[in-house]
Design a protein around this nucleic acid. Sequence first.
DNA 1: ATTCTCACA
DNA 2: TGTGAGTA
Length: 137
Amino acid sequence: MSKDEPIFPISVASKLLGLHPRTLRIYEEEGLIKPARIGQKRYFSHNDLEWIKCLRQLIHEEGISIPGIKKLLTLSPCWEIKNCPEEVRAQCSAYQDRTIPCWQRTKTACARRFQGCQTCEVYLRDIEKLSESAEDE
DNA sequence: ATTCTCACA
DNA sequence: TGTGAGTA
């Protein structure tokens, strides 16, 4: 039972997260999440849920806007956040093609960003960089 | 029974 | 964000 297996339909995912299904769809539209698609239906993996929890924390407790989060993630690519060694970066499609932010990818090594919420700490740390160097949007 | 998209209170 | 309409 891999943490990446898309097994939760939007109904149970939204219930587990205490969010309106609409909210999840909006997050997807914004490109913050990439639930698997089987036909037209969305399926969320355990990792998706963890990542969404991170988003909720950023949005509510930290008051970061959706655009702000997108900017944050664009400014802090996952290989930097995770301090990926060169060997890993070399085979990471997101690193090879920097034009597409890694958070818009799922089928790469970057997907590991979704594993566990320790990443939240890193993002929270990056928020400080954001506030001092960038201006809001 | 469920989910999807779209439009709007 | 939440709801309802009309589908598939």
